Computed example of a mutant assay.
Amino acid sequence: MPGGRLTQQERQRIAAGLADRLSYAEIARRLDRPTSTISREVARNGGPHGYRPQEAQRAAGRRAQRGTPAPPRAAGAPTTTAEERIIELAVGSGLPRMTARVHVDLLLSEDGRRTAAELTRRLNVSPASVSVAVNFLVQQGYVRRERDPRGRRDVYVLDDDAWYQSVLISSRHTLASARAALTAAEELGPDTPVGQRLTRAGTFLEHVIEDMLTSANRWRPLLT
C-alpha cells in the first residue's frame, strides 16, 4: 500500500469518485489507500459536496510549507474552516473543547497518528492538557495507544476501526445503565410509580442499544 502525501492526480480521482457517489471505502480501494486517508482528506477540504481537488492540493502545499497549525481564532470570530466546524460540532455534542481539538487534529492528520509532543506543539497547549484529552479518547475507544518502536514514546492512533470500538464502548455503558434501572425497578417494586418509570426507561434503552450493536456489526465492513 502506498504511503506519503496524496498527489494531485489522486485528489482528482477522489473528486471523480465523489461525483459518482462512490463510498469512501470504494475510493480508497481504487487508490490503494486507507479509507481513513480519504475520509480525512474530504473532511478537511469542504466535505463530499464541496471538495475541490485543486484547492485541496494548494491547501496541502501550504500546510507542508507551514509545518505548524494556524493560530487559534480570536474570541467571537466566525468559524470558517472545516476543522473549526468539526470541532464546534464535537463540542456541541458534549465533548470538552480540548479533547475535541485533539480528536480532530488526529482525524485530519495524514496517517491518523500523532505523538503527545506533536499534539502539544501543533495545538500550542501544555503536555498535561494533551494527556487528559488523549486519556479520555483512549478510554472511550476513539483512539488507541501504541508504543513507538523507534523510541520510548507513545503514539496515539485514530484508525477506521476506532469508530466501531467507540460505538461498542458507549453502548456497553448505556446498556449497563439500562440494566441498573431495571434492577432498581425490581427492588423498588415494578408496580410502584417509580418502578414503572424505571422499567420503561430501562427497557427502552436496552432495546435501542441492542439495535445499535446489531447495526454496528452489520455495517462494520464499510470501515475496512
Rank of each mutant, 00 (worst) to 15 (best):
residue 1 M to S: 11
residue 2 P to F: 08
residue 3 G to C: 00
residue 3 G to L: 02
residue 3 G to K: 04
residue 4 G to P: 02
residue 4 G to M: 08
residue 4 G to R: 08
residue 7 T to E: 06
residue 12 Q to I: 09
residue 12 Q to W: 11
residue 15 A to Q: 13
residue 16 A to T: 10
residue 18 L to E: 00
residue 22 L to F: 10
residue 22 L to R: 13
residue 23 S to W: 15
residue 23 S to F: 10
residue 23 S to R: 14
residue 31 L to K: 02
residue 32 D to L: 06
residue 33 R to I: 08
residue 34 P to R: 13
residue 38 I to A: 06
residue 40 R to Y: 11
residue 42 V to H: 02
residue 42 V to Y: 01
residue 44 R to I: 03
residue 46 G to I: 00
residue 47 G to V: 00
residue 49 H to M: 11
residue 53 P to N: 08
residue 54 Q to K: 04
residue 56 A to L: 05
residue 59 A to R: 15
residue 64 A to L: 12
residue 66 R to S: 01
residue 67 G to T: 07
residue 67 G to W: 05
residue 68 T to G: 06
residue 71 P to F: 03
residue 75 A to V: 09
residue 77 A to T: 00
residue 79 T to M: 01
residue 82 A to N: 06
residue 83 E to D: 13
residue 85 R to Y: 05
residue 85 R to W: 01
residue 85 R to G: 01
residue 85 R to E: 03
residue 85 R to I: 03
residue 92 G to T: 12
residue 95 L to E: 02
residue 96 P to A: 03
residue 102 V to N: 02
residue 108 L to E: 06
residue 109 S to A: 01
residue 109 S to G: 03
residue 110 E to Y: 04
residue 129 S to V: 04
residue 132 V to N: 07
residue 133 A to V: 00
residue 133 A to D: 00
residue 133 A to L: 03
residue 134 V to P: 00
residue 138 V to I: 11
residue 139 Q to L: 12
residue 139 Q to C: 10
residue 140 Q to R: 09
residue 140 Q to F: 09
residue 142 Y to A: 05
residue 149 P to N: 11
residue 151 G to L: 06
residue 152 R to K: 12
residue 153 R to K: 14
residue 155 V to D: 12
residue 159 D to Y: 05
residue 162 A to Y: 02
residue 163 W to V: 11
residue 166 S to A: 15
residue 169 I to C: 01
residue 170 S to A: 14
residue 171 S to L: 07
residue 171 S to V: 07
residue 174 T to R: 14
residue 174 T to E: 15
residue 174 T to N: 13
residue 183 T to L: 13
residue 183 T to F: 10
residue 186 E to H: 10
residue 190 P to A: 11
residue 191 D to K: 07
residue 193 P to H: 04
residue 195 G to K: 07
residue 197 R to P: 04
residue 198 L to D: 03
residue 201 A to K: 14
residue 201 A to C: 08
residue 202 G to W: 01
residue 209 I to C: 07
residue 220 R to K: 13
residue 220 R to C: 10
residue 221 P to C: 10
residue 221 P to N: 08
